[in-house]
Design a protein around this nucleic acid. Structure first.
Length: 213
DNA sequence: ACATTAAGTGATT
DNA sequence: AATCACTTAATGT
């Protein structure tokens, strides 16, 4: 057994029952991507569903000329969009890019549906994934509907900071603008304002959140 | 020293 | 809150 298989097995073991785990390793394909790699693009047929073993993926959606970040996928998560796409053999409506090095296993579409009937742990996993994404979507809907950009920016920075466990967030104003669906100029202004209030410090490509944040 | 990229700012919509 | 046009500052070669 290769090292890759062992690694995959170790990660999946706590999630699924033994027989499903065997099938998964038998029919699934293990893939690795490096930071920045294009994993899925608009218009490509989705014939398998990825299950992330390690790393983070950003999922985007394009509407006219704008592109917005839909969500991140991380360890042990799967893409609900991919699920519905490949069940109906539709083309991808999203683009996925590796945010950091990614190790994943792809489940062929025939198995998705088959396992749903045979393995309770698979059904639970799929249901939970949909639920997690749904809750998250409700949250971002609430953010957009009820909070102004300055509040969203603060929440965004807070999340980045706690996620990385550091008060230093290394992102350019442009990157932040892209993720919040705003423009660089606006983000720069809001950040400047927060800096004047003494709540953070701005460096090049880096923002330091002060204790008062 | 020069080019490139990031950030700051006033004016306009 | 977005866009434009322009400036200033930081970094890379």
């Amino acid at each position: 057994m290769t090292y890759e298989l062992q690694e995959a097995e170790a990660i999946l073991k706590p999630l699924f029952e033994e027989r499903l785990l065997r099938e998964m390793l038998q029919y699934g394909e293990l893939k690795r991507f490096s930071e920045g790699d294009l994993i899925m693009d608009y218009g490509k047929y989705v014939r398998s569903m990825p299950l992330i073993l390690k790393g983070t993926i950003k999922v985007f959606r394009q509407e006219q000329d704008k592109e917005i970040l839909l969500y991140y996928l991380s360890d042990q998560e799967t893409c609900s969009m991919a699920y519905s796409c490949c069940m109906e053999a539709r083309k991808s409506e999203v683009k996925a890019i590796a945010d950091e090095d990614v190790f994943l296993v792809t489940i062929p579409h025939q198995k998705l549906d088959e396992w749903l009937c045979t393995y309770p742990s698979w059904k639970n996993y799929i249901m939970r994934s949909f639920n997690v994404r749904f809750i998250e979507l409700l949250k971002s809907l609430e953010q957009i509907a009820f909070h102004r950009l300055d509040e969203r920016l603060e929440n965004y920075l807070r999340e980045k900071s706690t996620r990385s466990g550091s008060a230093l967030v290394h992102l350019s104003h442009q990157q932040i603008a892209d993720e919040l669906g705003s423009s660089r100029v606006v983000i720069s202004r809001l950040l400047k304002h927060l800096e004047n209030e003494g709540r953070l410090l701005i460096y090049r490509n880096e923002i330091k959140l002060l204790p008062s944040f």
